[in-house]
Write a protein that binds this DNA or RNA. Structure first.
Length: 269
DNA sequence: ATGACAACCTGTGGGC
DNA sequence: TGCCCACAGGTTGTCA
């Protein structure tokens, strides 16, 4: 479910319902996520007021008076606002109960997500992250520089969080199509000019996807429960074997680093 | 340092 | 209809 636009959509969905509320309690039904939720999290977070929300990479950061609650949605997680009295469904692992009768409810079938309570932004999981794709720190020159000497396929390079954060499988496929670059090409073998096109493509795609409320593939809904509408704009992801929207050739589907990659053999070189 | 790959876990869809 | 396998939006840790 969640790539960067989905996480940002979630953040925007919950923000107005969370800020200025006080956390009454944190109800943990199942602590076994990507990492076990630490026992102290619930008692420490309880009683604190929510000051604001931020996002770093695909981490959702909920700033409290004395801590920051860091949530990752993993592969299948969602965080939604609802009345705390709503009967929990299967895989509703955590409720952040607020003092206005609502809660932020975390559902995650695959349990690849995580909850951490930080005392500062200097956390091991955040320390080595690359630039935000929508910031000015990220551009073609940065990609070109980081790619010197790299033999890995450009798609895997682009999905490496130390290079740039927030570009998952969907948007990596789409950005490479938009930039006319074949996913298998070695990262160190691509010109500055082409990296400039790639960086622009990443920015355009992510901004557009956020605008559309994220990409709903199966059942993604933002914090406000609304689905995303970006899926209908996808040009290659999930379209292996179908015809290229630009040249009508047949899109090729391969496995690269254990992830499905789709590209046009004519438009992407 | 880099890159290849297994691992975490559940659900779903396709093929037989 | 039912079973089994492959694969699914992510990321870390290990090993060569």
């Amino acid at each position: 479910m969640p790539e960067l636009p989905e996480v940002e959509t979630t953040r925007r969905g919950i923000d107005p319902h969370a800020v200025d509320r006080r956390i009454e309690s944190v109800l943990i039904r199942n602590a076994k996520l990507r990492w076990p939720i630490e026992e102290a999290l619930a008692p420490l977070a309880s009683g604190q007021r929510i000051l604001g929300t931020r996002r770093r990479a695909k981490y959702l950061l909920i700033d409290l008076e004395h801590h920051t609650l860091m949530v990752h949605l993993g592969m299948s997680g969602s965080l939604r606002v609802m009345p705390a009295s709503t009967p929990p469904l299967f895989h509703d692992h955590v409720d952040i109960v607020l003092n206005d009768g609502n809660c932020l409810r975390y559902n995650d079938p695959r349990r690849f997500g995580s909850f951490h309570l930080l005392t500062s932004d200097d956390h091991a999981l955040l320390r080595h992250l690359g630039p935000e794709p929508l910031s000015s720190d990220f551009d073609g020159a940065w990609l070109y520089k980081a790619a010197r000497g790299r033999k890995a396929a450009v798609k895997q390079f682009l999905m490496d969080g130390r290079i740039v954060v927030g570009v998952g499988n969907i948007y990596a496929n789409e950005a490479l199509f938009m930039a006319g670059i074949r996913p298998t090409r070695r990262a160190g073998n691509i010109s500055l000019q082409r990296y400039q096109r790639l960086a622009e493509a990443v920015k355009e795609l992510l901004a557009a996807a956020i605008e559309q409320g994220g990409t709903t593939l199966r059942d993604f809904v933002g914090g406000d429960g609304k689905p995303g509408y970006f899926a209908q704009k996808l040009r290659v992801y999930g379209r292996g074997g179908q015809s290229c929207r630009a040249c009508s050739g047949q899109l090729q589907e391969i496995r690269l680093g254990n992830r499905t990659s789709v590209f046009c053999t004519t438009c992407q070189r």
